Simulated scan of single mutants.
Amino acid sequence: MFDVIVRSEEPILLVGGGDVDNDSLRAALSRFRCIVAADSGADSVLKAGGKPDAVIGDMDSISRATREALDPHVLHEIMEQDSTDFDKCLRSIDAPLVVAMGFLGQRVDHELAAFTVLARRSDRPCILIGREDVVALCPPVLNLEMPRGTRVSLWPLANVTGRSTGLHWPIDGITFAPDAVAGTSNHVDGPLEIAMDAPSMLLILPVDFSDALSRAIMAGPRWVS
């Protein structure tokens, strides 16, 4: 059991130290009441003109200037090295949704680690926003309306099954696995519904649908630990 550091009844913006578009981050900072940074993500927040309400991580990469610019009470150092800063943050946040920027792009190993955390913390709804894509763990049921032809990719993190309506290539009756069958480069033919039997499938959409995906995740059921 881990201590909750940040609680919110509204979605929270979480900023990591990876690739992030400064203009997009600046726009996001104006839309969220609560801002959390993962370690050196605090540098990105300050650069974009904001201030984090909490900084969580092992604090091995935050700059000295940023640390000195912040009130000490917003710094929450978690020293253990068995988890990533993203994991430390997600397990320490209690909110209906975490919208995370700065975790996609640049290093592939960091991206893969973030995907693992999405599955490990499946009871903490979260979307990862990059320059081109938005990535989330498929909830038990997802209902989403997008224009016909919109790209929908599914990537399994383990053996998993599910059902769909509105996908050009339905997923019913398929056992997905990372070393066997994946569901990349599908697209929608109508209103989309995806139901998964386990929290093991990543959903990848064009980044323009980040807000729609956020609303759909918050409106539907969530996985329980």
Rank of each mutant, 00 (worst) to 15 (best):
P191E: 06
V141W: 00
D123A: 14
L213V: 09
I174R: 09
E132R: 14
G130H: 08
A119C: 12
R124E: 00
P178V: 08
G173P: 13
I174Q: 08
D109A: 07
S122M: 08
V98R: 04
S153V: 13
G183C: 13
L144Q: 01
I127D: 06
F115R: 00
P170T: 12
R163T: 15
D87W: 02
A100Q: 06
R120I: 01
R163N: 12
G183M: 11
T116W: 09
F115S: 02
V188K: 03
A114D: 12
A114K: 07
G105Y: 08
A113Y: 07
S153W: 11
E193G: 00
E80S: 13
L213S: 09
A113C: 12
P199K: 06
F115A: 02
P125K: 07
A182W: 11
I93Q: 05
L118G: 04
H110R: 14
T84E: 00
T175G: 02
V141N: 10
L112H: 12
E145C: 12
E111N: 14
A114N: 14
N143V: 09
G166R: 11
G130K: 10
A198S: 15
G162D: 07
T84P: 01
T184E: 03
F86E: 01
V141M: 15
P96S: 09
I171Y: 06
L144M: 10
A113P: 09
M101T: 12
I174T: 15
P139F: 04
L205V: 04
I129W: 01
L142W: 04
S210M: 05
T84W: 00
L202K: 07
M201C: 06
L192S: 05
D197W: 02
G166E: 09
E132I: 04
E193C: 15
K88C: 01
R148N: 11
E132Q: 14
W155T: 07
G162F: 06
G102V: 10
L144C: 03
H76Q: 13
I78Q: 10
V188H: 03
L137F: 01
A212I: 03
P125S: 07
L137D: 00
S92V: 00
L157M: 15
G102L: 06
D82K: 09
R131D: 14
V134C: 02
A212W: 03
P170S: 13
V98C: 13
V108P: 02
A113S: 15
E132A: 13
C126D: 01
I204H: 03
P191S: 08
L97D: 02
L167V: 08
V117E: 04
T161D: 06
D211C: 05
E193R: 15
D109T: 06
V99R: 12
A180V: 10
S200W: 05
P170K: 14
D85V: 03
P139H: 06
V98F: 02
R120M: 01
F103M: 10
D172P: 02
R131L: 10
Q81H: 13
T175I: 13
L90S: 00
D85M: 07
R121Q: 14
E193H: 04
V188T: 15
S164K: 13
V99Y: 10
R124V: 06
T175W: 04
D85Y: 05
H168Y: 12
G102W: 09
P147C: 10
E193L: 05
G149T: 08
E111P: 04
A177I: 04
G149D: 07
